[in-house]
Amino acid sequence: MTHTTRTLAVVSAGLSDPSSTRLLADRLTEATVGELETAGHTVTVETIELREHAHAVVDAMLTGFPTGDLATVLNRLYAADGLIAVTPLFTTTYSGLFKSFVDILDRDALHDLPVLLAATGGTPRHSLALDYSMRPLFTYLHADVLSTAVFAATDDWAGQDDRVNPLPERIARAGRDLAAAVAARQQAPTAADPFESTPSFAELLAREGL
């Protein structure tokens, strides 16, 4: 296997600081990066805290195009080899900020991109939102959505459910699955310079004996 530099984009839609959403995003990132580095890859992480770009996201929805720091962030996301997307759940679905961010994404930019979905919420009964709301959202964008997804309820952080399917084990499994998908992804070859074989002005003069 050829070891390369891989770029991981991490989108966190937490509204508070600190937030359990960002904490889950960081844990999933650590697990994924650890697996890739163990396999010999160098990893670059681009973390996107949506709370910091909330106004720019709304502006992009109104104008039809992103500008400034948000445009830079989106370009880095589009160039990534894998994506971790984490949102809090409100009234059984993703946050409005998360949906607004997805709405301004280029419709073809996530094609075949490995995506790990994760969410936080008050009780385990909200976990179904991963499959009936988040997954269709990224499937519509033709992303390669992993079958593995992680939901963290309030009790998961307190360790009350450690005896059955504990959160650390679910995070580790998700990290392994995303790392495998990212490592297997074919990176686009560097485009050849169309003017590489064009002789310079000096060379043309030399050919004419000038």
Score class of each variant (00 low, 15 high):
residue 12 S to Q: 05
residue 194 P to R: 10
residue 161 D to K: 09
residue 116 L to W: 04
residue 187 Q to F: 00
residue 58 V to L: 12
residue 25 A to C: 11
residue 136 P to S: 03
residue 1 M to W: 01
residue 180 A to S: 15
residue 64 G to S: 12
residue 95 S to Q: 08
residue 66 P to D: 07
residue 33 V to Y: 00
residue 109 A to G: 06
residue 44 T to I: 09
residue 22 R to H: 08
residue 39 A to L: 09
residue 101 F to V: 03
residue 197 S to M: 07
residue 189 P to F: 07
residue 188 A to N: 07
residue 146 L to D: 12
residue 115 V to R: 01
residue 142 H to S: 13
residue 30 E to Q: 14
residue 7 T to W: 04
residue 60 A to W: 00
residue 96 G to W: 00
residue 1 M to F: 05
residue 97 L to K: 03
residue 1 M to N: 07
residue 160 Q to H: 11
residue 104 I to K: 06
residue 125 R to W: 03
residue 37 E to F: 01
residue 174 A to T: 01
residue 57 V to W: 02
residue 144 D to W: 02
residue 70 L to C: 08
residue 38 T to E: 15
residue 94 Y to F: 11
residue 163 R to W: 00
residue 142 H to R: 14
residue 176 R to S: 14
residue 178 L to F: 04
residue 167 L to E: 07
residue 139 T to Y: 02
residue 89 L to D: 02
residue 182 V to L: 08
residue 167 L to A: 09
residue 88 P to R: 10
residue 134 M to Q: 11
residue 22 R to E: 13
residue 195 F to M: 15
residue 117 L to D: 11
residue 169 E to Q: 14
residue 51 R to K: 14
residue 50 L to A: 11
residue 140 Y to S: 12
residue 135 R to D: 08
residue 85 A to Y: 10
residue 68 G to W: 05
residue 39 A to V: 04
residue 145 V to E: 07
residue 75 N to G: 15
residue 129 A to M: 05
residue 135 R to H: 05
residue 130 L to I: 09
residue 52 E to Y: 00
residue 189 P to T: 10
residue 164 V to I: 13
residue 198 T to L: 15
residue 25 A to E: 08
residue 174 A to N: 06
residue 169 E to A: 15
residue 43 V to N: 03
residue 99 K to V: 09
residue 59 D to W: 00
residue 198 T to Q: 12
residue 98 F to Y: 13
residue 174 A to M: 05
residue 49 E to G: 08
residue 143 A to C: 04
residue 69 D to C: 02
residue 56 A to P: 02
residue 110 L to M: 08
residue 172 A to V: 10
residue 148 T to L: 00
residue 127 S to N: 05
residue 84 I to Q: 06
residue 19 S to W: 01
residue 191 A to N: 03
residue 89 L to E: 02
residue 181 A to T: 09
residue 52 E to K: 10
residue 53 H to K: 03
residue 107 R to L: 12
residue 75 N to T: 15
residue 56 A to C: 06
residue 31 A to T: 06
residue 116 L to G: 07
residue 174 A to S: 08
residue 178 L to T: 11
residue 120 T to K: 08
residue 181 A to M: 06
residue 141 L to K: 03
residue 60 A to N: 05
residue 154 T to N: 13
residue 36 L to P: 04
residue 2 T to L: 12
residue 38 T to K: 14
residue 4 T to I: 05
residue 123 T to C: 04
residue 205 L to E: 12
residue 172 A to W: 01
residue 89 L to K: 01
residue 171 I to R: 01
